[in-house]
Simulated assay, not measured.
Amino acid sequence: MEIKLEEVIPSEDIEGATIIWEYNGTHENGNLFGVESSGKKVTVRGMTFLKCENGKVIEEKGIVDNLSLLMQLGALG
């Protein structure tokens, strides 16, 4: 899997940042969301929100486009 950082947006309100990212990989190792390894290449986008204090991450929240991943794996319909 390869992860590409597309944008890092520093927070104006708190010490922290929003990171927009994309990962590319191949579904090779085991069952993922009920789909057996397929060898399919997938691309998934998401965002991670980091809250920091004294230069250290103290909280992390994220959003991942799992619907897109399920569609690429053929798990829907």
Rank of each mutant, 00 (worst) to 15 (best):
M1W: 11
E2M: 02
E2Q: 12
I3F: 15
I3S: 13
I3K: 14
I3Y: 13
K4V: 02
K4L: 04
L5D: 15
L5T: 13
L5Y: 11
E6N: 14
E6W: 11
E7A: 08
E7L: 06
V8R: 00
V8H: 02
V8C: 00
I9Q: 02
I9T: 07
P10A: 01
P10Q: 07
P10D: 06
S11M: 03
S11N: 01
E12W: 03
E12M: 04
D13C: 00
I14D: 11
I14Q: 10
E15P: 07
E15C: 00
G16C: 04
G16A: 08
G16P: 06
A17Y: 05
A17W: 00
T18D: 13
T18W: 13
I19R: 12
I19M: 11
I19Y: 09
I20N: 15
I20T: 08
I20K: 15
W21M: 03
W21Y: 09
Y23M: 12
N24P: 09
N24H: 08
N24A: 06
N24Y: 01
G25M: 01
G25I: 03
T26E: 14
H27Y: 12
E28K: 15
E28M: 12
E28C: 14
N29F: 08
N29L: 02
G30M: 06
G30I: 04
N31P: 03
N31V: 14
N31M: 08
L32P: 13
F33A: 12
F33Y: 06
F33W: 04
F33I: 01
G34E: 01
V35D: 11
V35W: 13
E36T: 11
E36M: 01
S38P: 02
S38M: 04
G39H: 14
G39T: 07
K40W: 04
K41Q: 11
K41C: 11
V42N: 08
V42L: 05
V42Q: 09
V42M: 10
T43Y: 06
T43K: 15
V44G: 11
V44Q: 01
V44W: 05
R45N: 14
R45G: 08
R45I: 09
G46E: 04
G46M: 05
M47R: 10
M47W: 07
T48N: 09
T48W: 00
T48M: 01
T48S: 11
F49V: 12
F49R: 08
L50T: 01
K51G: 03
K51I: 00
C52L: 11
C52P: 03
E53H: 10
E53S: 12
E53W: 08
E53K: 15
N54R: 07
G55L: 01
K56I: 07
V57N: 07
V57W: 08
V57T: 05
V57H: 05
I58Y: 06
E59G: 04
E60G: 00
E60M: 03
E60V: 01
K61C: 04
K61M: 10
K61Q: 02
G62H: 13
G62T: 02
I63D: 14
I63W: 15
V64A: 15
V64M: 13
D65F: 00
N66A: 14
N66S: 15
N66E: 14
L67N: 15
L67M: 09
L67P: 13
S68T: 04
S68F: 07
L69M: 14
L70G: 11
M71N: 15
M71R: 09
M71F: 13
L76V: 15
G77L: 10
G77A: 12
G77W: 03
